[in-house]
Write a protein that binds this DNA or RNA. Sequence first.
DNA 1: TTTGTATTTTGACAGTGTCAAGTTCACGTG
DNA 2: CACGTGAACTTGACACTGTCAAAATACAAA
Lengths: 196, 196
Amino acid sequence: MSAKTPHHHGNLRPALIAAGITVLEEDGMAGLSLRKVAAKVGVSHAAPAHHFNGKNGLLLGIAAEGFRTFVKLMQEGRDTAAPDPQAQLLGLCHGYLKFADEHQALFQLIFSTEIKNDPDEDLRKVSLQAFDMLVDTCALFEPSPQHERANEVMIWSLVHGYATLRRFNRMMASERNVVMPFDLILPKMTPKAPPG
Amino acid sequence: MSAKTPHHHGNLRPALIAAGITVLEEDGMAGLSLRKVAAKVGVSHAAPAHHFNGKNGLLLGIAAEGFRTFVKLMQEGRDTAAPDPQAQLLGLCHGYLKFADEHQALFQLIFSTEIKNDPDEDLRKVSLQAFDMLVDTCALFEPSPQHERANEVMIWSLVHGYATLRRFNRMMASERNVVMPFDLILPKMTPKAPPG
DNA sequence: TTTGTATTTTGACAGTGTCAAGTTCACGTG
DNA sequence: CACGTGAACTTGACACTGTCAAAATACAAA
């Protein structure tokens, strides 16, 4: 249980994840290598593989960390919004879009199939946390008469697709730039309790 | 202009793209390498790089081909649907989802930022073609009073997000599997001409 | 045939992930 | 205090990757 610097470096795991995120945001997914991360932290080239059981493990660790800031931004979006359901939902979505904008590589990574999701309980836990935020916010509204979860699926699909579309549109850099304020395409749902 | 087998192999470019797609759908993005594609076609390891100006070029070629079958499936979705606007839009979306389901790696590739979009005119052209299909189908409906393109953006966001969400949900394999028929979350829009 | 040009091959290089074997350190037990 | 014992890390090697320059090949035109 002692938490003093144990060996040459110390607690490598979090340092490697942090360095990995830095490399990812600087050089993108293609520039992320175990050896570069190792060099950035100042350890030998094979050290990361030992801690994460291969590159996939490092990606899992980075993705879990990415989900954490994802959840954090969505929470901040809600916290800074008015308490009525519509504003809460809009705030959540703004946090979602902020994450997609400011952490493009992480956003792509956490929704990527490049990672083989081993029984990494941490990642699954924090990803369900993100989904829970959405479910909780949608619970402020009347459920769709057609399907109990239709609201969640619709909102998540909308915001996720919109975030990806914006990225893609910017990437293609066509003259047809159709990005618009997100609340313009948010559907109307009836809140459970009147806003006051 | 002569199209006889010119050299050792012949028209390598399309063969390499086809092999690349095969490798991609079998081994995923991680297993796709220039050398493997070259071996599959039966040429030397450096031949692909010459035709595509590096790996990124091959990815551009594969992505363009992916967009073509993407457009094809959406077109088929419309063709096999009733002529009224709602059925046409639903058919288009079913083609969209079919592509995402049956060509997962391609779907991920064409919406990925891993590709540096050089002035590859072919890719941009065919990607705009896909967007046009959506615009044309949405043109069967009254435009949103708030913004001229709100319908397109909303529909594309919805269907794209839904496709990704399904993939992600399946990947995470949580007990919370919320996939449902897509038409349940399609918003109501008023068609321009009465269906008949 | 000769020339010319596009196509393909060959060989080399640095960088990658992974594995096996070694080294170094902290720590608990005698 | 000496001593192992095990975890953290290093070292060295291997196969594989993308890229490049130079050579060899094949076809078209003259």
